[in-house]
Design a binder for these strands. Structure first.
Lengths: 265, 265
DNA sequence: ATGTGGCCAGAGAGGCCGATT
DNA sequence: AATCGGCCTCTCTGGCCACAT
């Protein structure tokens, strides 16, 4: 009756991240119709509106797709966060699910704040070795009445709303083109995903060094997918109310895409 | 079997706002211990942290104190919003509950964006008559399958975290001194609360006209309380883990304060 | 054309401070 | 000392644009 993720093998832990991502992809798909409707047609008081829309939509999509909650909360910059019991074949695991919403007109990379980085990163930019330390804890310690503290594994997911602006005066104001969902590997997978600065999906951040802003970092979609196809999922809108229910899995640079069944909302 | 708030008398509608506020005050009181614990001890990556804390705490406090949900969502800048059925003696009413969280080192006024203003406002500032139109709709129209649309009354509440900074390096980082809860009157009460520019709880906004920022507006606590005591509630921390469970009601410039029972969390 | 870097832009949300009374 | 007005600061979040392959 294992309750500690640290007892899992690497492959088991990867499977835990995979099933976590699989569930939010299902949730996003089921909510995709309303998500697109709201995203495209909500009037914009300001251009910042898309940020708020993305956050709200992630909440609406995911809050109905939760697992057994653990009575523990904390506040902070992460958009959607839940401490919960996650059922897995390897045990019922305490998990700290962290999901961040992003809105973007790009669809090839994601910018992370240091506080959103789950693993120490090493990469090369302009021939120099750049480093950034993880800002996300590997787990959250939950004081346990019985046998010492419980460790809730932290799982870092990102939901990326890829869109373009259409109009500022009338609906539709925007076109939500697709919803990407990414699972960034836990710190423990450093040897697997970033053993050295040249082997990585990380890239130079978006910050301006000139104005010495807080450093950020980027995750490149193609490279992440090449290292582990299922970690990059994409739900595409092709003219239908709902997105295309596709799940990426398997091997190879782009993996294999297969449709999945879903119930709409 | 009334389902339309427009059939209520003014007094009945006031009572609806009052019971809505009463419920969130109960919820805030029950959550006050954890709220203070999180507010005071959460490390601050930046000074903006308090804003996020306030938003999260409002969500945590209120999400467990909801009424029968209506299956309808919309996204936007309001921190906490729920469309729901509110049971009242005057009928089961569709309601759009809007709650905004504010963090402040002041405790005498609240700044509202125009989009948070539920009634057209008139007031005098520096001898000139200033005006601001409501940015909140009186109700949300819900397409109804049976007998035409349903109108969800909009109820505008604010939760104000009054605090001061303590330290930037070690816990406690802040001191949450009290939690205020305000109910801003619905547009229909304009004749009651702001019949003319000199009779009002509104005041000049915080925006800089010089840099022509979007106009904002202020609500003055004392004046709001003088016009209707129960619309300004305050839960004070006096050294105890939980705030003092006090509810303001009755008449007079400050009304009457009485304690209420609560179950902690 | 793409993949990368990175400079800037805007807009929330409040901290504060200076007049007034 | 309070009550008001209002200027300005900070910092989030991405739009974009310029190179480099």
């Amino acid at each position: 009756m294992n309750q500690d993720y640290r007892n899992l093998t690497d492959d088991e832990h990867e499977a835990v991240e995979k099933q976590s991502l699989r569930m939010i992809v299902q949730a996003l798909q089921e909510y995709s119709r309303e998500a697109k409707q709201i995203f495209d047609n909500t009037k914009a008081p300001s251009k910042t509106e898309v940020i708020v829309l993305a956050e709200d939509l992630v909440q609406y999509a995911l809050e109905v797709a939760e697992t057994y909650p653990i009575n523990r909360r904390y506040a902070g910059f992460i958009d959607y966060k839940r401490i919960r019991w996650l059922p897995t074949p390897y045990g019922l695991l305490p998990q700290a699910l962290l999901v961040d919403a992003k809105a973007s007109t790009e669809n090839n990379r994601e910018t992370l704040q240091q506080s959103q980085l789950p693993m120490n990163a090493d990469f090369i930019s302009k021939d120099v070795h750049v480093t950034m330390n993880a800002g996300v804890e590997p787990h959250l310690e939950l004081p346990d009445t019985m046998n010492g503290p419980l460790h809730a594994v932290t799982t870092s997911l990102f939901v990326h709303f890829y869109y373009r602006d259409i109009s500022t005066t009338q609906a539709p104001y925007r076109e939500l083109k697709s919803i990407y969902a990414l699972a960034i590997p836990h710190a423990r997978f450093k040897p697997r995903y970033n053993p050295d600065p040249t082997t990585t999906f990380f890239g130079q951040g978006k910050h301006s060094s000139a104005r010495d802003e807080d450093p950020r970092i980027r995750v490149y979609f193609t490279r992440l997918m090449a290292m582990c196809p299922w970690r990059l999922q994409c739900l595409n809108f092709n003219g239908n109310p709902y997105a295309e229910p596709m799940w990426r899995d398997g091997l190879g640079p782009t993996g294999t895409i297969t449709p999945f069944a879903y119930l709409g909302r």
